[in-house]
Amino acid sequence: MCAYSIETDGLTKKYGDCAAVNNVSLHVPGGQIYGLLGRNGAGKTTTMKLLLNLIRPTDGKIVLLGEGCHNRKNYYRIGSMIETPAFYENLTARENLEILARLRGRHRRDTIAHALRAVGLEQEERKLFRAYSVGMKQRLGLAAAIMHEPELLILDEPMNGLDPIGIHAFRSYLLRLCREKGTTVLISSHILGEIEQLADWIGYMHKGRLLEEISFQELCRKNRRYAAFEVSDVKRAALILEKQYHILDYAVFGKNSLRVYEQLDQRAQINSGFIRAGLAVSGIELRAGSLEDYFIQKENEQAQCLSEEKM
């Protein structure tokens, strides 16, 4: 198995002078859930459409499941749902899935029934698609995406329109697929709360650019409560933390900043320890970052970079 199920290099899509996707290098590890986050219009859907060969890139390279995107057969191993699910209005759920199964040409006999059962639509399979509610349409879209048991799932805002029970069931299903069958999932959303309960990795897009790719573990680590120390010598401060207080969970930022993530109630004693060791402590503060704050900060950083570039 290759390290990445999805890998892009400098992926760009321009409409005239406007870059909907700008130099995106995405790395989605195999067998994990990757959440693609960003505001509306950030370029998430365009990126997914590029991956699925629905639109042609202006520039850049795409590798899916170890092969280039020009290998059409590779797409049999991929399931997807882009934006709102689209099916033939005059057909039933079963007929719509039958069309997809026929076009795919390879499926077990019980595939359709199994997919409908998985999304809880087995009682509604004879209802016309046009008579479906938004949530039911969404569930049928999911059934179409998973019916051939793909190795890679690409889902664009799949929980839109689902009720809370439906969201919970869908989340559990995705986690089970990923953990038990090793399916890789790329899922996009503009709602952070949806993604943080699922994703192993997060990619954050803003104005067509991928600002950051980060493991969820690392993201949480960056955003949990910590005591921030401003000290004159971080190397000696780190040594004190380890030797005197047996603290290993800390991070050094630059020459003078130190973040301590454990034993926060001991911060006054740690401060005393630093001073006793002859270090000058110019600041100590208890902080907690939220994921929203983290990404807003990233957006601001990028805006600053762009304005500096222009100047």
Binding site: K49, L52, N53, L54, R72, Y75, Y76, I78, S80, I82, E83, T84, P85, A86, F87, Y88, E89, L100, L103, R104, A144
Partner: peptide
């Protein structure tokens, strides 16, 4: 109808 019902994205990702 493939455009009005937006079904091309569903069919082409099968892929066809």
């Amino acid at each position: 109808r493939e455009y009005t019902e937006r079904t091309l994205k569903t069919v082409f990702t099968v892929p066809v």
